[in-house]
Amino acid sequence: MTSIFSGANKIIRTDNLQLLESVPDASVTMIYVDPPFNTGRTQARSAMTAVRVADGEGDRVGFGGHSYETLRGALASYDDAFTNYWDFLEPRLEHAWRILADDGTLYLHLDYREVHYAKVMLDMIFGRDHFLNEIIWAYDYGGRSKRKWPAKHDTILVYVKDPKNYWFDTEEVDREPYMAPGLVTAEKRARGKLPTDVWWHTIVSPTGKEKTGYPTQKPVGLVRRMVAASSRPDDWVLDFFAGSGTLGAAAEQLGRKYVLVDQNPQAIEIMTSRFPEAEFISD
C-alpha cells in the first residue's frame, strides 16, 4: 500500500480509526485534532497494545502507582459519560502516538467538558513526561450567562513523542504585540513578543471571508501557530477529525504537506471546495 504521506496533499473520506490502523509507525511530524465533544458513541476498541507508560507492576502503571485499568474503573464509576468518550477517543490517540515521528508533536483541541478526561488518557498513552503544554485559547464572543462565569476558552493539550528530541521553532511563530509597549524598547515593540500558553484570538467571524459554514470551524491563525512551531517546510501534518480543513489552510500558508480525514459529507464537501488541488480519496 502506498503511504498516504507521499505525493500530493490529500483529503480522505473514510472512518479515521480504520485509516489509522493502516498507517506505518513514525509517519508524520505533527498531528492536530479537534474531535467532537462527547459523541456518546461506544466504539469497539482496537487491538492496539503499544502504549507508553511508566514501568512497574500491574497492567499499566499510572498516577501514584495505580494501574491503568484501576484508574479507568475509578473514573468510569464517577461519570457514566466517561466510558463512552474514553472508548471512542483512546484507540485513535494510541494510533496518534504510534504514527508520530520521533520528533513529532500532537495537539489535541477540546473544550472544558472533556479536557480533564483527555489529559489523564494522554498521560497514560504518551507518559506524563511527554506532556509539553496546556494551551488556553481565549476568545470573547457569544452569550453572557448570569448564573456562572461564561465559558470563553478552549484547551489544547500538547504532547511530544520524545521529550528529548521534539521539533519546536519559535522563530517561525507569529509574534504578538506587547500588552505594555511603553515598558519595552522600540526594537522589541516592532518585533513583538513570543506567545505564552494563553492565546487570545478571535473566533471565525460569522460574516468574514474565512467562514465556510462548518459549525465547529477553527480560525486559521490559531492552527497556523501550532504548525509553524512544530513542523518544518515540506513536513507532513495530519488532522483525522478534519471538519472544515483549517489545518490544510494553515499548512498551505506555511509550505507544509497535509492529510485531512473525515467521514462527514458536509466536511468533505467544504474541504474539496476549499482545496480543489488536493487529491481526494474515498473508501
Score class of each variant (00 low, 15 high):
129 D>A: 14
133 N>H: 14
109 H>Y: 14
130 H>F: 05
133 N>D: 12
123 D>E: 13
132 L>C: 08
112 Y>D: 11
116 H>Y: 08
110 L>W: 07
120 V>T: 12
140 D>L: 05
137 W>M: 04
127 G>M: 11
109 H>A: 01
139 Y>Q: 02
116 H>W: 04
133 N>I: 02
114 E>R: 02
108 L>Q: 00
139 Y>H: 07
119 K>C: 08
105 T>P: 01
110 L>I: 10
141 Y>H: 11
104 G>T: 09
132 L>D: 10
143 G>R: 09
142 G>M: 02
130 H>R: 13
131 F>A: 11
132 L>V: 10
141 Y>G: 05
128 R>V: 14
122 L>P: 06
107 Y>L: 14
131 F>G: 03
126 F>S: 07
107 Y>N: 02
126 F>N: 02
111 D>N: 04
107 Y>P: 00
144 R>T: 15
130 H>E: 05
106 L>F: 10
122 L>C: 10
141 Y>N: 12
136 I>H: 09
105 T>N: 06
121 M>C: 08
139 Y>P: 02
131 F>R: 13
137 W>Y: 08
136 I>W: 06
144 R>M: 15
118 A>W: 02
125 I>L: 04
112 Y>V: 11
104 G>S: 08
133 N>R: 13
124 M>C: 12
134 E>T: 12
114 E>S: 15
112 Y>K: 04
109 H>T: 07
144 R>H: 09
113 R>Q: 12
113 R>L: 08
115 V>M: 04
138 A>V: 11
120 V>P: 01
139 Y>E: 03
138 A>R: 15
144 R>V: 15
117 Y>P: 00
129 D>G: 10
116 H>F: 09
133 N>C: 06
137 W>I: 07
130 H>A: 11
112 Y>S: 08
114 E>Q: 12
123 D>F: 01
125 I>G: 05
144 R>F: 13
104 G>M: 07
118 A>S: 13
114 E>H: 02
110 L>C: 11
109 H>F: 15
126 F>C: 06
106 L>T: 04
118 A>I: 09
130 H>V: 03
135 I>S: 03
136 I>R: 08
126 F>I: 05
108 L>M: 01
118 A>Y: 05
126 F>K: 05
139 Y>K: 02
133 N>A: 12
122 L>M: 15
110 L>H: 03
111 D>C: 03
107 Y>H: 14
129 D>E: 15
119 K>T: 11
125 I>V: 14
134 E>V: 04
127 G>L: 11
111 D>H: 05
141 Y>T: 14
143 G>H: 06
144 R>A: 12
142 G>R: 03
140 D>W: 03
121 M>N: 01
117 Y>T: 00
136 I>N: 06
141 Y>E: 13
129 D>H: 15
105 T>S: 12
123 D>K: 01
